[in-house]
Amino acid sequence: IQIFEKGDFSGQMYETTEDCPSIMEQFHMREIHSCKVLEGVWIFYELPNYRGRQYLLDKKEYRKPIDWGAASPAVQSFRRI
């Protein structure tokens, strides 16, 4: 998965294949504004440590949070399923 600090795949980008319990600790990001799921299925969580509201992401590109069903870019953790 590739995660971006700004919408439309702009700003700082990080790519990982590992679960992330805290985007702040692992990537020094506060929010995720866009992402590209390159393979597999992932779950975004609103809070750290896989808690809070969940969003299921299939293999595709998400230009903004509304594309994965979120009203805001408040994603604090994610993991692959």
Score class of each variant (00 low, 15 high):
residue 5 E to G: 08
residue 8 D to C: 14
residue 20 C to M: 09
residue 9 F to P: 01
residue 1 I to D: 00
residue 38 L to S: 09
residue 79 R to E: 03
residue 28 H to K: 14
residue 23 I to C: 07
residue 65 P to Y: 15
residue 12 Q to R: 11
residue 7 G to N: 03
residue 42 W to C: 03
residue 3 I to V: 06
residue 37 V to T: 10
residue 9 F to R: 04
residue 75 V to G: 13
residue 71 A to Q: 03
residue 34 S to W: 00
residue 63 R to D: 06
residue 61 E to L: 04
residue 29 M to S: 13
residue 17 T to C: 12
residue 6 K to S: 14
residue 37 V to E: 04
residue 43 I to H: 03
residue 8 D to Y: 14
residue 13 M to C: 09
residue 47 L to Q: 04
residue 22 S to N: 10
residue 55 Y to F: 15
residue 32 I to F: 14
residue 29 M to Q: 13
residue 14 Y to R: 09
residue 7 G to P: 10
residue 49 N to S: 07
residue 50 Y to T: 00
residue 44 F to S: 02
residue 27 F to W: 12
residue 15 E to N: 11
residue 2 Q to R: 12
residue 9 F to E: 03
residue 17 T to H: 14
residue 26 Q to Y: 14
residue 26 Q to A: 08
residue 18 E to L: 08
residue 12 Q to K: 06
residue 74 A to S: 05
residue 23 I to F: 10
residue 9 F to C: 13
residue 38 L to R: 10
residue 40 G to M: 01
residue 29 M to F: 12
residue 4 F to S: 04
residue 63 R to F: 08
residue 31 E to Y: 15
residue 4 F to P: 00
residue 46 E to Y: 01
residue 24 M to A: 06
residue 67 D to V: 08
residue 26 Q to K: 05
residue 59 K to A: 11
residue 23 I to Q: 02
residue 7 G to T: 08
residue 77 S to P: 01
residue 70 A to Y: 15
residue 15 E to I: 03
residue 3 I to A: 04
residue 47 L to I: 01
residue 20 C to V: 05
residue 19 D to G: 07
residue 36 K to S: 11
residue 43 I to S: 11
residue 42 W to I: 09
residue 3 I to P: 00
residue 17 T to S: 06
residue 68 W to A: 03
residue 49 N to E: 11
residue 73 P to D: 03
residue 38 L to D: 13
residue 24 M to L: 10
residue 50 Y to M: 05
residue 19 D to K: 04
residue 44 F to P: 00
residue 13 M to T: 12
residue 17 T to R: 09
residue 5 E to M: 12
residue 45 Y to S: 06
residue 22 S to G: 08
residue 40 G to V: 00
residue 1 I to K: 01
residue 55 Y to K: 02
residue 50 Y to K: 00
residue 43 I to R: 11
residue 50 Y to H: 05
residue 18 E to F: 09
residue 60 K to R: 04
residue 58 D to T: 10
residue 56 L to D: 15
residue 59 K to S: 04
residue 33 H to Q: 08
residue 56 L to A: 15
residue 50 Y to W: 07
residue 79 R to A: 15
residue 33 H to W: 13
residue 77 S to F: 00
residue 49 N to H: 09
residue 56 L to T: 07
residue 61 E to W: 14
residue 79 R to K: 02
residue 43 I to Y: 13
residue 80 R to M: 02
residue 6 K to E: 10
residue 38 L to H: 12
residue 45 Y to V: 00
residue 28 H to D: 12
residue 15 E to Y: 15
residue 81 I to L: 06
residue 5 E to Y: 14
residue 12 Q to I: 08
residue 6 K to Q: 06
residue 21 P to R: 05
residue 35 C to H: 01
residue 66 I to Q: 15
residue 33 H to F: 14
residue 20 C to L: 04
residue 35 C to W: 09
residue 75 V to K: 01
residue 78 F to S: 02
residue 41 V to I: 05
residue 16 T to P: 14
residue 46 E to W: 00
residue 51 R to T: 14
residue 46 E to C: 09
residue 21 P to D: 06
residue 57 L to T: 05
residue 72 S to P: 13
residue 31 E to W: 14
residue 60 K to D: 02
residue 4 F to H: 08
residue 28 H to P: 15
residue 30 R to K: 13
residue 75 V to S: 01
residue 21 P to H: 14
residue 23 I to T: 07
residue 42 W to M: 03
residue 64 K to D: 04
residue 45 Y to R: 00
residue 14 Y to K: 09
residue 17 T to W: 11
residue 67 D to E: 13
residue 2 Q to W: 10
residue 49 N to I: 02
residue 30 R to L: 07
residue 80 R to G: 12
residue 40 G to D: 09
residue 65 P to V: 15
residue 29 M to W: 12
residue 64 K to H: 02
residue 31 E to Q: 11
residue 68 W to R: 03
residue 30 R to T: 10
residue 15 E to G: 07
residue 34 S to H: 01
residue 68 W to M: 15
residue 47 L to M: 14
residue 71 A to F: 09
residue 29 M to L: 05
residue 20 C to Q: 09
residue 26 Q to L: 12
residue 15 E to F: 06
residue 66 I to N: 07
residue 38 L to W: 08
residue 33 H to I: 09
residue 31 E to N: 09
residue 12 Q to H: 07
residue 59 K to L: 04
residue 57 L to Q: 01
residue 27 F to S: 10
residue 6 K to C: 04
residue 18 E to N: 14
residue 61 E to N: 12
residue 38 L to I: 04
residue 71 A to V: 11
residue 16 T to K: 04
residue 69 G to K: 04
residue 16 T to S: 08
residue 48 P to E: 06
residue 28 H to R: 07
residue 67 D to T: 02
residue 43 I to C: 04
residue 76 Q to E: 04
residue 77 S to C: 02
residue 11 G to L: 04
residue 54 Q to A: 08
residue 74 A to G: 13
residue 51 R to V: 08
residue 18 E to V: 10
residue 47 L to Y: 11
residue 73 P to E: 03
